[in-house]
Amino acid sequence: MTEKMTISRLASAAGVNVETVRFYQKSGLIDEPARPYSGYRTYGSDDARRIRFIKRAQLLGFTLDEIASLLKLEGSQTCASTRDLAARKLAMVEAKLSDLLAMKTALATMVSRCDSEHPGANCPIIQTLIDD
């Protein structure tokens, strides 16, 4: 039998806050249980597992829409679809890394120029941004 938890216990078990649980409910990522006569909705361990899945996917850069797609694929025989989604995300990450590396190189060059220029001259960083 699965443990029944209040929303605050669910949030704690999943490592999020209560507002995150409510946001996921409003986003359709997790179901909102019906309110019983006692007035307190209860959640099970599957709900906590699903929230942890969502948080891990977010840490990997998946958007909430992409996570919704992943959740639809969960448990079915659709490994190829899941792999394709992850491969697209990987390509996006690689492109961002390439952009970040170019930014790093440009900034390092600017800082180096600034360190080697005479103190009274125009700022080489500002001049580079104006010229380029």
Rank of each mutant, 00 (worst) to 15 (best):
G61H: 02
Y37V: 09
T20V: 04
I54F: 02
D131K: 12
T82C: 13
G44Q: 03
G39K: 11
A11Q: 02
E19C: 12
P119M: 06
M103L: 15
I7Q: 04
V21L: 00
L64I: 11
S112T: 11
T78P: 03
E117A: 15
S12L: 02
I126V: 14
A11D: 00
A57G: 10
D84I: 04
A68N: 03
S76Q: 14
L60D: 06
R22Y: 01
A80G: 06
R35K: 09
L107S: 02
A121G: 11
R35H: 07
L73W: 09
M110G: 11
G15D: 04
S116I: 06
I51M: 00
L97Q: 13
L70A: 07
G44I: 01
L60W: 06
S76V: 12
T42V: 14
S98D: 07
V16Y: 05
D99P: 03
A108D: 13
V111G: 01
R50W: 13
I54L: 07
D115A: 10
T42E: 05
P119E: 04
L10A: 10
A34E: 01
E66H: 09
A108F: 05
L129D: 00
R41L: 00
K89S: 01
I54W: 10
A14K: 04
D115H: 12
E94W: 07
A86D: 08
L90S: 14
E66Q: 12
L73D: 08
Y24W: 00
L73K: 08
Q58A: 10
S98C: 12
K26F: 05
A86L: 07
L10G: 06
T105I: 14
N122P: 14
Y43F: 15
I54V: 10
E117F: 08
A14D: 03
L129M: 09
K104C: 11
H118G: 11
G44D: 00
L90D: 09
D131A: 15
T63D: 05
Q58S: 15
L29E: 03
I130H: 04
G15S: 04
L64T: 00
D31R: 02
S8L: 13
R113Q: 15
R41Q: 00
V93P: 03
F62P: 02
K89C: 00
D31S: 13
H118D: 03
Q77F: 01
I67M: 13
Y43S: 07
L60A: 12
L10V: 03
S8V: 11
A34F: 01
T105Y: 14
K96P: 06
A87E: 06
R83M: 01
S45T: 09
V16I: 03
G28S: 02
D132R: 13
G39L: 01
A91I: 05
V93G: 08
